[in-house]
Simulated scan of single mutants.
Amino acid sequence: MTYTVTIHRTHTLLKLTYKKGELCKIEIKSGCLNSQQYQQLGAILPPREEDIERYQEQWNGSVSYREDVPEPLSLYGKFLDEWFAFYKHLYGFPPKFTGADGKALKQIISYLQQVSANDTEALATWQYLLSNWQKMDAFHQKNTDLKYINSQLNKILQNAKRGNSSATTAYSDNFKREILQGLFTR
C-alpha cells in the first residue's frame, strides 16, 4: 500500500510504500528538505502501516497522511492482466512483452470491441478465449504469442465457437447470437 505524506510547512510531498505492513520505501515526489529536516524525518514517518492513524492525530495540521487509491485499470490494462495471468498459468513464468506485442494486443482489443456490444463483452470474449485455450486445436494451443493470436484471431474465434458449441457460458443469448454466430457467417 502507498501513502502520500504532505509536510505543510515545506510544501513537500513524500510517497511512502508499505509491504506486509512495514515501511519499505520513501520517495520525495515534490519539494525539498534541508539536512536538518532530513535528520528529523524519522519523527514523522510511521514505521508500520497500522501507525498511520496515530501519526495523523499527532501531527494534525502540520503533516497529513493520505492513502493512495490506485486508478482503475484501462481496458488495455485489463486485457494485459488477463494475458499475463494466462501465460504465467500456462508456462509458469511471465511472457516477454515487447512493443510488437503491445501493438498486437491493441489490435485484438480493437477488433473485439468492433464485434462486441460493449467493452465488457469484449473483455469477456478475451477471458473466454484464454480460459478455454486448452480446447483449441493442438496447433493453436502451441501458438500462444500475441502476434500470432492477432494474425489468426478469426480462425481462433471460429475454433473456439466450434469446439465449445455445447458448453454453457455466462454470456447472454443476445451476445452469442449477434456476436459469435453473425461474426463468422460471412
Rank of each mutant, 00 (worst) to 15 (best):
T17Y: 07
N60A: 12
A122F: 07
E82Q: 09
R54C: 02
I52V: 10
V69Y: 08
Y55S: 01
L45G: 00
K15V: 02
E27K: 14
Y111M: 06
S110H: 05
I26H: 09
Y38S: 15
L14A: 01
K88V: 13
K15I: 00
Y65G: 06
L23F: 03
G92L: 01
E67G: 04
Q56Y: 12
K29V: 15
R66G: 12
E49V: 10
S35C: 10
K20W: 11
L16A: 03
Y91K: 15
S74I: 14
I44S: 12
S64V: 01
F79M: 12
I108H: 03
P94V: 04
Y91M: 07
Y38K: 05
E50S: 10
F97I: 05
I28G: 08
S35D: 15
L75W: 11
D101Y: 06
Q58E: 11
Q36K: 15
P94F: 03
K20S: 08
D119F: 02
P95K: 04
S30W: 00
G31L: 03
L90S: 13
L105P: 10
K78M: 00
S62E: 04
A122I: 08
K96T: 15
P94A: 03
Y38T: 07
V115C: 05
A104P: 12
H11M: 09
Y91Q: 13
D119W: 05
L90H: 09
L41Q: 03
Q113T: 02
K96R: 15
I109G: 04
K78P: 13
P72M: 08
E22P: 10
S62A: 03
P70I: 00
G21M: 00
F86R: 00
E71R: 12
D119T: 06
S74M: 02
L112H: 09
K19E: 08
A100G: 09
Y76N: 04
Q107T: 12
T17V: 01
A100L: 08
N118W: 00
H89A: 15
K25Y: 04
Q37P: 11
L75V: 08
F93S: 11
Y65V: 10
